[in-house]
Design a protein around this nucleic acid. Structure first.
Lengths: 167, 167
DNA sequence: CCACATAGCTTGAGAGTTCAACCACCCCTA
DNA sequence: TAGGGGTGGTTGAACTCTCAAGCTATGTGG
């Protein structure tokens, strides 16, 4: 590949380890709380939230996938499951006969409303209550920077004409 | 429950969303890189790393579970899989006849050595290269604070005699 | 207007995770 | 020393996720 590997220094390893450990533990905690108290994984809750925020409480599958940070495949399986519990419905999109629209049902909204308090409380206690305002500001900027760095993948290559592998 | 829910403000929602999005996207990217280039999920890589750092390249199952941020059950399944590929072996622990010791094999060490460069490169490019030194320092402290907050769960209750639910 | 590439979404199979038992053993106490 | 609770670890089933097709519909160059 492209030259030598830039290994992590001791200090960098500590940072990396602290970040990664917190990530794993925190998301495990949040996901566990959601499963235990509301019987659904966080990924499903995320889908319901995105739908509830959308106009008419419905979204095209592809948009819902992007909004809920999910792959098309994953979303498809998840929506099938949510359909079985009666929390969403699926209908053909008008205009493009390939597309489908997913809509949050009243039962789905009720489930979301029931799950929200416990979830928000967990997030507040385990994130906002343990960090200073300065740390929270920093965390927001850090999060944005990381996301931006990940997105710029093919963007950069595409902008330059994609000399390397096609994206 | 204990009073009203402390909902998130607009600003807090932005912070939460930025943090959570970065987490999901980043860990998905790292895990995907590992699966694609080395044929194992990050959780397995983590197990191999912890073993490689241990004395004699072996650890008790319970210690390995803690070190690799994994539940007992998950580790048990994972080690079964890693045993099949020949990357680790399991043998009874001496002293405690309930216990088992997991040991990294030479093949396992080779697999780890092969996987490390790609992994470290991904982490450097997508984390260390996109953040400033100040942000990295902040991230380390933030990570520690979050982990500490999660750990203090039953600790506090236990210290006070656990008046509420038994842990 | 006909290929042919691409977009939108689904499906099936295999892999990994979670949860709730479960077994075997250790340790403490009566 | 027998009972009983706690620890170490495994197992199976249900569930979720990933990957690689696959299928239908759109759009585009000839």
């Amino acid at each position: 590949m492209s030259g030598e590997v830039r290994w992590l220094t001791e200090a960098e390893q500590e940072t990396w380890r602290a970040y990664m450990t917190a990530n794993v533990e925190f998301s495990a905690y949040i996901d566990r709380q959601m499963r235990r108290d509301s019987g659904m994984p966080m990924a499903y809750y995320e889908i319901l939230v995105r739908l509830s925020e959308a106009d008419g409480r419905c979204l095209r599958m592809s948009e819902l996938a992007r909004a809920s940070l999910s792959s098309r495949s994953r979303l498809s399986h998840a929506v099938s499951a949510l359909e079985k519990t009666g929390w969403v419905t699926r209908r053909p999109a008008d205009g493009d006969r390939r597309g489908w629209v997913c809509e949050l049902t009243d039962a789905g909204y009720a489930a979301l409303a029931a799950a929200a308090p416990g979830h928000v409380t967990a997030v507040r206690e385990k994130l906002f209550d343990v960090l200073t305002p300065e740390q929270l500001d920093a965390l927001r900027d850090i999060g944005r920077a990381i996301s931006a760095g990940l997105r710029q993948e093919c963007d950069a290559a595409a902008a330059e004409g994609c000399e390397e592998e096609p994206c």
